[in-house]
Write a protein that binds this DNA or RNA. Structure first.
Lengths: 349, 349
DNA sequence: TTGTAGGCGTTATCAA
DNA sequence: TTGATAACGCCTACAA
């Protein structure tokens, strides 16, 4: 508890906002009746309801949520926690997640707030926010191994849902995820099935479960197909990272005829690198990505990829969170979406 | 006041969070002393302070912000309002804005929350959130003509700063912006100065001041140079939109030798379209963008553009908001950054 | 330096 | 159907 520079607290100027008291007086009813009229209006006479409604419009009354949440123990908002440096906050993946979560909240009176806690930054500020009763629950996305969100949130009792399997397998916290393992396996099967034999891998960050699971599945698939895994390089899920990784790959093994990249963005980088080296996709090198971002490589070539219904997954996470908040005592189980391969031009001629 | 589906409110399970009362008891002091120890510790004996600190650690105490804000009238957080459909939420511009605002809050105990209110969606939910005392102030970015944020927020008294000049010129609300008019003018001067005479325009959305100001400045610059404005098409600030606009442009006037696009993303689309038509940049057509996003066109050609220090601008907006919240009564003036042209390969040979 | 008492705006309980 | 009244958790004069 040592706020750095909490600014002094001179109350804001201007007329104070109207309170329930003011509203009740204007409507000629008691505070309690006004309160009931505001919240659904059960056991309120039509006359009283009308009077209160009129007063609301006249005064521009809006309930003070701090006061309300103090007694209801509900904040009326949920957080989407993004433990990424702000630069990466804005990639298509997060756009999809935001879209999906918003969809799940559409018929609700719950407001979504995005919380970004930079790694290395004082994430305890975010934690205080989360635990201080500002939100009724949290969805954590893009969780990294060392960020500690699982333990931290798990111990607070704040309803929490992860998008993407969290690291701590013992954790009881529910999550929604794609079957990343199976996705990797499908990629291996596909490339093996089309006759590719010298395969390289551009894996994702080692500290994210999605990357690890995709890699594990891919290796398992290769094994089942009787193929040896070729060189493996880890990228950061970005296009530039994918290109760089691909160059390393071909530096180690110039004869590769197939590459699996753990994200479409990286796959795009791989395509660039292959072409930059004067080779063709898919004639010389087949490329398979992951996510089905419907990105096109520069000259209109489409990427073979593993479908990843991110919007749907995020939406499901939102619904799960709502159930966790309403907490009927039920144990919420993880939800895992099946993986599906989408074959396009980058891997078959 | 008619919450759609406010879920029933069964309090969350589990042990209740420790309260100040619990803390004080554990520390063997009174509530007030505990409170003082928590908030800066003035007039607290070292012994009492130590006892309270120990109890905090032991209990994992975190103040309930709803209760606190009820009495202090401070929420400890500010909102960044983004009135865009969630799909567009995640472009580089917003990434820069988030980065900048976060920087301004770095030494503060204030948490930044992102609020996205889709156009067409019930933005009153966002408004209730804003007015309900959940935040101490708001920064509005990407404000559109019809979204009503100026009037709405202006009337609430909530400290508000706009990034980008708001529509309502009468508004007293402070804002931070680039000198977009001058930026457009610089672009015109530059193209005229390099001998281009048949100029096309890819303007931005008509309902955003940045787009309008850039266009006005550009037209003014052309006038000063004695050039007639060629065809004008409005795009949506995206690459695809820019390409489409460029094709229309060349459909109307095939002999264009220069194009000004009101954003780098659109300029990129213009470059694509020009090349797609078998012409060269800059030999046949010079292209000038806006924003200095340091994007490269596919084959490594760099864009001439108008610099737009978005991070810096957003940071300034955050600082302005903090001052508005601390409100020493001073009238906060708009801040306008000078425009600067960055000449690169897309406009000169 | 400490503790007591009152109030912030709302909802919930319980008589009337 | 209505209206007192008591919390909710915290801060802050004020008095000790």
């Amino acid at each position: 508890m040592n706020p750095k520079t909490t600014p002094a607290a001179p109350a804001r100027e201007g007329r104070p906002l109207p309170t329930l008291e003011d509203l009740a007086r204007a409507a000629g009813v008691s505070r309690s009746t006004a309160s009931r009229a505001i919240n659904g209006g059960s056991r309120v006479s039509p006359a009283a309801q009308a009077a209160v409604d009129a007063a609301i419009a006249e005064l521009g009354y809006i309930p003070n949520r701090a006061a309300r949440s103090l007694v209801t123990r509900r904040a009326g908002s949920v957080a989407l926690v993004i433990p990424e440096p702000d630069a990466r906050v804005m990639d298509p993946y997060f756009a999809a997640v935001v879209t999906g979560v918003n969809q799940s909240l559409r018929d609700t009176d719950i407001q979504l707030v995005l919380l970004m806690s930079r790694a290395g930054d004082d994430s305890s500020r975010t934690l205080r926010y989360l635990r201080g009763g500002h939100v009724d629950g949290a969805i954590v996305v893009s969780h990294h191994r060392a960020d500690g969100w699982v333990e931290t949130l798990g111990s607070t009792g704040l309803p929490t849902v992860f998008i993407g399997r969290p690291w701590d397998r013992k954790s009881e916290l529910p999550f929604v995820d794609l079957d990343n393992f199976e996705g990797g396996r499908l990629a291996a099967r596909h490339l093996a099935g089309t006759g590719r034999t010298h395969l390289g891998t551009v894996a994702g960050p080692k500290d994210m479960t999605a990357a690890v699971d995709r890699l594990d599945g891919w290796l398992q698939g290769l094994k089942e197909a009787g193929l040896k895994p070729g060189p493996i390089v880890h990228g950061d899920f970005t296009t530039a990272g994918g290109a760089e990784a691909a160059r390393k790959l071909f530096g180690q093994a110039p004869a590769l005829d197939g590459v699996f990249a753990a994200s479409d963005l990286m796959a795009l980088g791989v395509v660039e690198a292959v072409r930059g080296a004067g080779k063709g996709v898919p004639e010389d090198v087949a490329v398979v990505g992951f996510d089905n971002h419907s990105i096109q490589a520069p000259n209109g070539m489409d990427l073979t990829t593993v479908a990843h219904p991110m919007v749907e997954i995020a939406k499901n996470a939102g619904q799960l969170l709502i159930r966790a908040i309403e907490n009927t005592g039920e144990q919420l189980e993880p939800v895992i979406y099946p993986a599906e391969l989408v074959v396009r031009g980058s891997s078959v001629m």
